[in-house]
Design a binder for these strands. Structure first.
Lengths: 146, 146
DNA sequence: CTTCGTGCAAAAGCTTTGCAATGCG
DNA sequence: CGCATTGCAAAGCTTTTGCACGAAG
């Protein structure tokens, strides 16, 4: 088990650390892609063969509670999880062709927020947005196909 | 069973119409809120006590295939369905306090689309977006509470 | 009359929960 | 040593599927 930087802080805050929780955090944190609970479980099994998927789910809930991971829903029926840098709000462009995810900062939505605030008196609260579409590379491929 | 305007057209196109399918369409169409399959089923039972939830799901899939309804995912674990006016693309602001849904036209995102296209070479394909936040009325209540 | 849709029941997929045993602090 | 967390098994919830019957065109 690598020593994660947040370990000491969490322990100071009175949280109970277990190899399982640390391993889940480690996997979510070190993975570029957003993984499902099952994928996270699969990634841990080689190192900790007896870890149960239920423990992965419980660890993920705990990690959400302490603010270290956030769930994201790309609409395919299962939740995925991402590491949440300290208070960092960002969003993702998800290519429907190659599934690649591009991270975009929250301030891209500044103008949209203002517009909707003005026109509808509605305050947008974007925790995380997964925006579907097509990346440049796949668009080329699609044009060639047609 | 009321005669829905799309009935004749569908029949002309060779589709097989059943009371169940028409009833599902009718409920989705006449409801302002976006309903889950279970809610749709519950709404039909008084009129057709023997309709099964499986039939509701199958009818909804068929209605999606013929382009009359679209699923929307607000991330609470079950899908909701909305009536799709002819080729009409729109989105919703969903108040997290009172759950009220406000419809907004697609062109509110025109600027955002351009920005993301330019900055990331990514073409947004927004079928339907459910944007969380707080409506004006609930914001007042929230301020009063604090 | 043929084909497709329905009802019913069972299964599938993701996530949660109860409980006794284990291990963290 | 006490209590939270784990593993295991079972249940929950939404959605899907197999199959024989029944209805649509």
């Amino acid at each position: 088990m690598e020593h994660l930087e947040e370990a000491t802080l969490l322990r100071q805050q009175g949280h109970r650390l277990t190899p399982q929780r640390l391993q889940v955090l480690q996997v979510v944190k070190s993975n570029a892609r957003h993984l499902t609970a099952e994928e996270i479980h699969a990634a841990i099994v080689p190192e900790q063969p007896y870890i149960d998927i239920a423990t992965v789910y419980r660890s993920l809930q705990w990690l959400q509670a302490v603010g270290l991971v956030a769930p994201i829903n790309i609409g395919d029926g299962r939740l995925r999880y991402e590491y949440r840098h300290r208070g960092d709000h960002h969003h993702h462009l998800i290519c429907q062709e190659c599934e690649q995810e591009t991270e975009i900062p929250d301030d891209v939505f500044a103008m949209l927020k203002t517009t909707i605030e003005e026109r509808y008196g509605f305050t947008i609260q974007l925790e995380h947005l997964a925006i579907p579409g097509h990346c440049a590379a796949c668009r080329v491929v699609m044009v060639q196909r047609s």
